[in-house]
């Protein structure tokens, strides 16, 4: 029992020393700390803003998509009820209304002075999907139904929307990737310099049998710390950007999604950790043989 307590306090002391070494590394890095955090926070802010826009656009498209109406015209000879039941079996339907040709014709006659000819209209089903992404698959399935004469939906609008989202995602992600690489490069260089600066300490520790992780961890922690601090700054920037966006959106009667910012915050912190810790890890791997 006292053995356990003893080894636990030893571990605690070692942990304390590792944090101290990290602190000393930060002190030695000096002004460069601030430069790194400013650069990294800027980059993460850009990334966060892009991400928020992309996610918001996705939400917007989904909302738009669920408003899009598919009109299904049913063959004259088909049994309308049967066709409707069959369509109802399809997944992701938000809303479905059947308008009989008699009803449609009556309404048309009410609005326009039409001559008294035989009713030329087909039975029609109007339907909305839960999301934009289900429209095309549903359209394909509808086309293959025997009772369906033809159908109509705003194809071009949907195509354009999905192209814009895709384009924004690709551009946004490539820009972010390049910026992330740049940040990693800067951190990698900083940690490399620090490793050179601490060469003597490292050599002493190695030769005297201090564990490899004790030597490596302060560098990794330093990189990770840059990531987290920068990410928190970037979260602040994104927060204000979203607030601003909401002000603008109010005039268009739109609203940003609350969960969007939360997702962005989480991704920013993870990205910061990955890029910061990753940059340091590359330097440690490359320049610190233990």
């Amino acid at each position: 029992m006292s053995d356990l307590v003893g080894s636990l306090t030893t571990e605690l002391r070692i942990t304390g020393r590792i944090f101290r070494e990290t602190g000393m590394g930060l002190k030695r890095t000096g002004l460069m700390n601030i430069i790194i955090v400013v650069i990294m926070a800027s980059i993460l802010s850009i990334f966060g803003a892009l991400l928020a826009v992309i996610i918001e656009m996705g939400v917007l498209v989904q909302n738009l998509g669920s408003e899009v109406e598919i009109s299904v015209y049913i063959k004259d000879e088909a049994n309308t009820q049967q066709v409707r039941d069959e369509i109802m079996k399809l997944p992701h339907i938000k809303k479905l209304t059947l308008i009989s040709k008699e009803k449609a014709w009556a309404e048309m006659q009410k609005e326009y002075p039409l001559p008294d000819v035989e009713n030329p209209l087909p039975d029609t089903i109007h339907m909305q999907m839960t999301s934009e992404k289900h429209i095309l698959t549903t359209v394909e399935k509808l086309k293959s139904l025997p009772g369906v004469e033809t159908l109509q939906y705003p194809k071009e609008v949907l195509d354009k929307i999905s192209k814009i989202t895709q384009g924004a995602s690709i551009v946004g992600m490539s820009v972010s990737f390049i910026l992330a690489m740049l940040t990693m490069f800067i951190i990698n260089n900083t940690i490399h310099l620090l490793i050179q600066n601490k060469r003597r300490e490292i050599e002493i520790l190695r030769m005297m049998g201090v564990g490899n992780w004790y030597i490596r961890l302060p560098f990794l922690l330093q990189g990770a710390l840059y990531g987290v601090v920068s990410a928190l700054v970037a979260c602040g920037a994104v927060y204000f950007a979203v607030e601003f966006l909401n002000q603008v959106f109010i005039t268009f009667q739109l609203q940003t999604n609350e969960s969007t910012s939360n997702i962005v915050y989480i991704i920013l912190v993870l990205m910061g950790l990955l890029v910061g810790g990753g940059g340091a890890a590359i330097a440690v791997r490359k320049y610190l043989q233990v």
């Binding site: 030893t10 571990e11 605690l12 002391r13 070692i14 020393r17 003597r200 300490e201 050599e203 002493i204 520790l205 005297m208 049998g209 201090v210 004790y214």
Partner: peptide
């Protein structure tokens, strides 16, 4: 291979501290 600017005591203690003594 002594650490510059650190006392003889700290130089000798350096590794023991790292080992959690």
């Amino acid at each position: 291979k002594l650490l510059p600017g650190q006392s003889a005591f700290d130089n000798v203690a350096y590794v023991l501290r790292a080992l959690g003594v």
